[in-house]
Design a protein around this nucleic acid. Structure first.
Lengths: 128, 128, 128, 128
DNA sequence: GTGGTCTAGACCACT
DNA sequence: GTGGTCTAGACCACC
């Protein structure tokens, strides 16, 4: 995994894990890497991973069994999907449409791009 | 003007001024408020406004006449429009499409939201 | 048995066993489950049970006969009762009173809650 | 301020600040000490204070103005009081009563102690 | 000046 | 082994 500049690493890890869960690469109930393992894997300080895990636990995406490790929560997929869809449709999309109107980009243009995009990506499964 | 959390105030001011220019509320060649005036108006430290003006000047949206004030640049509209459209199409759009697909948002759902959005905004013209 | 978050499991086991003894479900002199049995029963690592037994032995609630097992000590009930009452009255109660005052909980409110509590618990004897 | 063993310092700071707010020593809207100031005052690492502030912000007891500092939130008192009273009455008190019954301490004893306590503390304002 | 992030390293309790 | 807390110190962006 490669990190962007300008965005806290721990938040990028949060997003990365949410994606793993959404894509079904990490299943509900499954154990996820320990703080130290993931730290080594991502070449990041374990504390930074810890911070991401804290956040994910607060959002009920993962939970903890003391002395054993962290696990994907039971309704993680549903929870993440619901929260992020709501956030997108109610908050991001309106701002996006505002911006597009200002730039004279038609919403149809967005829809078109999206359909095209979906066609291209339905064929070959993305592996990340 | 109300500021968002989590985004530097000076960048929000930059965006706000770009919007003014794009909407034609501030015309090319017209003088814009002094650093102190705008600071008072937005209830913000003048230093913060200064920082926004510096940025806008670097992007050639405004220019400075020493001892007189700041003015909207001659090709401001065209410049801003070009830059932001490019930024949007090349950098934001791809990320956006990825995200929508991950969240299983259908094109239909998208146009649906779009219509809803139009209804809400056709009534009350934005005052800003 | 269901474990709380945020409190060491072995301490919860200690409390659980003390309760058994106080309620007279486990009599003085009686043999209690082996470390492995209890581990299996509570779905917990035997090491964790061991730690609880060590603690209970130090507090003279149980004792060990090598090769045979653990037994409830002779004066277990009296000992536990005395220790816990002292602990409660001297250390917990003052903190509790401070807290209730800070939260502006009236004595009336307290007795009210108490009655409610009795109603709920008179019906179904606790099975544990 | 003196810290207990066995409880995370940052949580003790959280509780300490909640108390300040409840007692009205820190008013709503008022600025609270900076992370570094409080760190120096409590002889604790600023990071530890930061962690407490993060938690308090998540619970909407305080909020942040970038580059300026942290402030007590508008409905802090009401929020804290509501949350803690609910927590106490619904969750702590039942556990407490269970325990007292087991130890053969009557609930009346608690009420009596409390009334006595209230009488003693209504005279001389506590200064902390 | 303010908060925010990150690192490195330590120590502890728990399983 | 696991997570959790804490320290010290660095660097950065923002006001």
């Amino acid at each position: 995994m490669k990190f962007e500049e300008n965005r806290p690493i721990y938040l990028q890890i949060v997003a990365w894990i949410c994606e793993k869960v959404l894509r079904g690469e990490w299943h509900e109930g499954e154990r996820i890497p320990s703080v130290r393992e993931l730290g080594a894997l991502l070449q990041v300080n374990p504390n930074t991973v810890m911070r991401a895990y804290e956040r994910l636990q607060a959002e009920q995406v993962i939970y903890n069994q003391r002395g054993i490790g962290y696990f994907v929560a039971q309704d993680a997929v549903q929870g993440v999907l619901g929260a992020q869809r709501a956030e997108f449709l109610e908050s991001e999309l309106p701002r996006l449409l505002d911006r597009m109107m200002l730039l004279s980009i038609t919403p149809e243009c967005l829809t078109e791009s999206y359909k095209l995009y979906l066609e291209n990506h339905s064929k070959h499964e993305n592996t990340l």
